Amino acid sequence: MILNASVPYALDLPGPYAKRVILYLEARNLLDRTYAASAQNLANSVDPRTCLENAAAVLAATPGSVSSPVPHATSAVG
């Protein structure tokens, strides 16, 4: 769940040049959570010399192994 807050405020002005001022305050992602828009399986492999799983650096260097997610985007309605 994403928690956003917004406060709009409109002020009518008596002057001849500006009729109205609209102020808008918005705070996004108040709970400070990070969301992943997509996920992909990691390629896992075993080192034939040691019979242990390869380290994260080896997996990260494997093409197509890691898919970086798109940051979560929100839009204001109004």
Rank of each mutant, 00 (worst) to 15 (best):
D12W: 07
L13M: 07
A43T: 13
L52H: 15
Y9F: 06
V46M: 07
V21N: 00
L52C: 12
Y24I: 12
Q40W: 14
R20K: 06
A5M: 03
L3M: 10
A39L: 13
Q40F: 07
N29I: 03
A36C: 08
A61N: 15
L11Q: 14
S68K: 13
A57F: 06
P71H: 00
G15R: 02
C51H: 14
A27F: 02
S67N: 12
P63M: 02
V66S: 03
P14V: 03
L59I: 04
Y17W: 09
S6K: 00
V7K: 06
M1V: 12
L25S: 13
K19V: 04
D47E: 13
P48K: 02
N44S: 08
T62W: 01
L25Y: 14
C51M: 11
N29Q: 07
P71F: 00
S38R: 08
V58D: 06
G78W: 04
D12C: 02
N41T: 14
T74L: 02
H72M: 12
R49G: 01
A10Y: 06
V21G: 05
L30V: 06
V58P: 02
E53Q: 14
P69D: 09
A37F: 02
V46F: 01
L30N: 06
M1P: 12
Y24M: 07
N54D: 00
E53M: 00
V7I: 15
P69S: 07
N44K: 10
A60T: 08
R28E: 10
S38H: 09
R49S: 06
A43I: 14
Y9V: 10
T50I: 00
